[in-house]
Design a protein around this nucleic acid. Sequence first.
RNA 1: GCCCCGGUAGCUCAGUCUGGAUAGAGCAGCGGUCUUCUAAACCGCAGGUCGCAGGUUCGACUCCUGCCCGGGGCGCCA
Length: 620
Amino acid sequence: MASQDPVQILRERFAAAMRDAFGDALPADADPLISPSRQPELGDYQSNAAMPLAKALGRNPRQIAQELAARLDLSGVAEPVSEKNIAGPGFINVRLSTDALARLLDGLEDHDLGVERPARAQTVVVDLCGVNLAKQMHVGHLRATVIGDALARTNARLGHTVHRQNHLGDWGLPIAMVTDAVMDGVRNGTIDLNALRLSDLERIYRAAQRACDADEKGLDAVKRYGLGPKALAELEEQVAGANERMARAKATLLNLQRHEPETVAVWRRIAQITLDECLAICRRLQANVAEEHTAGESTYAEELAGVVADLESRGVASVSDGALVIDLKDVGIAEPLLIRKSDGGFLYATTDLAGIRRRVQKLGADRVIYAVDARQSLHFRQAFAGAKKAGYARRPDGSDAALIHAAFGTILGEDNRPFKTRSGDNVKLSDLLDEAVARAEAAIAERSPELPAEQRRINAEAIGIAAIKYADLSSDRAKDYVFNFDRMLAFEGDTGPYLLYALVRIRSILRKAAEQGLTPADGAARAALRIGAKEEKDLALTLLRYPGTLQSVADSCEPHRLTNFLHDLAGAFAVFFRECPVLQAETPEMRASRLRLCALTGRVLEDGLGVLGIPTVDRM
RNA sequence: GCCCCGGUAGCUCAGUCUGGAUAGAGCAGCGGUCUUCUAAACCGCAGGUCGCAGGUUCGACUCCUGCCCGGGGCGCCA
């Protein structure tokens, strides 16, 4: 199947002309540099190849452009180029032929919106969501879930095999603390395991952490400055109590590690309560994170000793100040990766190495993508380098899998500080979704009072979620962004609702057309596309960018490239909608052609929003 | 101290990967457009030392060096 993407097609035609014109003199890295035109009045696409080529060959760029133009075969694609299509220092402007444009759109419609099956499907592992036991999801989990899910969907859409991994924080001393506290409560009758909820668990977790935190510094200060026997006694009691709680937590961790049934049963219950709520929120967020994607830290517990022994025996890791570390200076990282504490305990880096090993060796990953906060950047640079050094990222063909940290910035409040509640707590994700939906419902009540209440409720849910996800996905993920309900739910602007509105108008036209017995028929019976008006052409050229955009999202792990595209598409449709009557078109042929254009635009919008995990509505 | 990320219009952001034509959107401001497929839309006007300074280049928001500002990180927490 030939590509439906004019950029691809023109790239091949130009590359052929370049080889033809310059033969062996052609630099190996010579690129046709095809892109949609920056000057639509001059052409649809442009090649900037002549300038770098002129530099490499030490010749005049306009002359190079002319030689390229002379050998360029654009038959069946574009109008022939001549002197008049060469502009400025050597830009070559190309205008698609009308019939080629229609044919490419036919192809887009027939061939999965132009998405070609990959020559070799890759296995892609996406680490996403990343919740912790006994903690509610908060804003920090929004991005890990939404971005991770979008990247997983993008890769799946392109035909790759995707494994989602919810790397649940369900192991280690903090988890033992809360487990111990819950067991305590069960024994003394203050906790009913069956009635226990996540909000209770979170409270218990915090209390347990406080209880284990010995105020040694305070005690030292009291002793040093002689702050009196009362203060001394209080602090001594605090420290003694904390030490005792800590000792019990450590004992509980040992019990977990040796699978002591009672302890494990309580821990399992805590995990299930946490996971149930996490998965419910993911469902509400329309993020595909389900039970089967759970791969908690606890599932690596049995592997860690083996990993550490393996690395030590092969000399990959060595002892430093009592700890076992992988030195990374030879790969340009000053900080060593600690994989075993001097007390023998393992660290989260140890688990991450085991994770890379499992994902590449067992799951067969060609790429592993981590949708994790940017503050973990150094950690992942170290872990990736350590894993490669250990050979854990090695694929059967001997090359290393691509390990990618899709780092994202912090969500900020209006004060430009990390988004918190008034009291300084993390904002619960469920509260955030509730508020977005409530605000959407208010907007709908004002805007569309004619809709039945039930429909308004359904729309509010979809629009609220769409607004939040679009806002999160539409800026460069590396950057921090300021969370603002008013802006993301605004009636106007670059928002989720804007895209949904474009789709609503398309669906409305298609409904009305169907009422008149008109359908944008497929296959042989379908009407010919007649791309005449400027607005039709702009819309058509935008549609053709879709497959290339998807590919670039997958390559860069940057979903905002897709939101930018969809916004362009919705904008091109809005102009088309304004200027080009569909049902009232001048002729039946034009009406049929425009109806197909509407249907195709609707399909691409639906597909793109689906790739981002953004829900849609039929009316608004 | 070292490392990473960011700095583009009054505000919020694209564009930087791979240098290329007068740097683009949205919001806010001003002015237009609904007897016609949903005006949550569209059109126009106005708004810019692309943090600063050098350098490379025919050409720099884009690449290189230094600096300034903001955020984050840096051996036994996860």
